[in-house]
Nucleic acid binder design. Structure first.
Lengths: 127, 127
DNA sequence: CGGCATCCTTGCCGATACTG
DNA sequence: CAGTATCGGCAAGGATGCCG
């Protein structure tokens, strides 16, 4: 059965949807190669289980590569595949948008957005 | 209490995270103004409850505007605020990436991604 | 038509313990 | 160090019915 999408965003969400995937990808985008335990430090909120889980899904989607070093102690490095690098612009924008959003909230408080909204309403009523 | 983010993407996810928000925003980005029932047609999978819910959250985040027409039958139109328009580049990229991803899968089958991964592995081993 | 409230199910995800 | 397995809570989300 072929899945049908109204718009591409649904397909994208199937790949990077979920609570942690964009965060994981962003870190990989910034750092290059990341080991499992490094992830756990970078993303304190995530559990071992979810981390492995999300990494597996990203791997199967072809976005990241999992390199296993056969040694003791074990070592596993994750990195973006070339296909995963195609996500870079999106990841960067998600990152910068969020940073600006936070700045905005810190500078002017929560209600700056409401003020903005009121301006929009005023605009529309003149039309 | 002030929330602290390691990277901006976490803040972004707080705003547009969730199963439906990016889809809603994408539709608004494409169509301009959308009525409630139009949304239900555009997004068949969503329930009335979730639709209202997600729209409210986006409204409170300052991304969309809810215009109520006082008439019978009732009429409500949603549209992006000027702040919400700042999302456009992200929404467009999410959309186009997904479209290309779907194309890729349809053209070459699921395993093209695995082949890509193998190439990456080969690359790394030469280094 | 658009929205709210209620009940109820699903499955996500965390906590814990264990293997190689 | 990296990963698996199992259990269970709890919130996300669906279905239904009622209101302006």
């Amino acid at each position: 059965m072929q899945k049908v999408y109204n718009i591409g965003v649904e397909a994208t969400l199937e790949v990077i949807g979920g609570k942690w995937k964009p965060i994981i990808l962003c870190h990989l985008n910034h750092h290059g190669k990341i080991r499992t335990n490094e992830f756990r430090r970078l993303i304190p909120g995530i559990s071992q289980k979810m981390l492995t889980n999300q990494l597996r899904e990203l791997e199967q989607a072809g976005l990241i590569h999992r390199k296993v070093f056969n040694q003791v102690p074990p070592k596993v490095e994750y990195s973006l595949t070339s296909y995963g690098h195609g996500m870079e612009p999106i990841l960067n924008m998600l990152c910068t948008w969020g940073e600006k959003h936070v700045e905005l909230l810190q500078d002017k408080g929560e209600d700056v957005l409401l003020k903005q909204r009121d301006e929009d309403i005023a605009m529309q009523q003149t039309s």
